[in-house]
């Protein structure tokens, strides 16, 4: 799944480690989500979106899911 996490991190000048610590996960998980290897759970997606004051749809691209 495509996400805007990388762009948002750069905008907020955050490292993966800092974001991971803030949302209660590990740096490796953030890397995997950014690369599209791992699809995060609803809870983690909510935490990430809330951290950037955005909705889940604004951070995560659900177009691939909708196609199915």
């Amino acid at each position: 799944m495509k996400t805007k996490i990388k762009e948002l991190r750069k905008q907020y000048k955050l490292s993966q480690e800092e974001l991971a610590l803030a949302v209660g996960t590990t740096r490796q998980t953030i890397t995997s989500i950014e690369c599209g290897k791992y699809t995060s759970s609803l809870v983690l997606a909510y935490k990430i979106a809330k951290y950037f004051n955005l909705s889940i749809e604004e951070v995560f691209d659900f177009s691939e899911v909708e196609e199915i």
């Binding site: 991971a20 610590l21 209660g24 998980t29 791992y38 995060s40 983690l44």
Partner: peptide
């Protein structure tokens, strides 16, 4: 505290 949170996150990480 930071190390503690990191350890907690590591143990409770959904991907892991």
């Amino acid at each position: 505290d930071t190390q503690l949170k990191k350890l907690y996150n590591c143990e409770n990480d959904e991907r892991r």
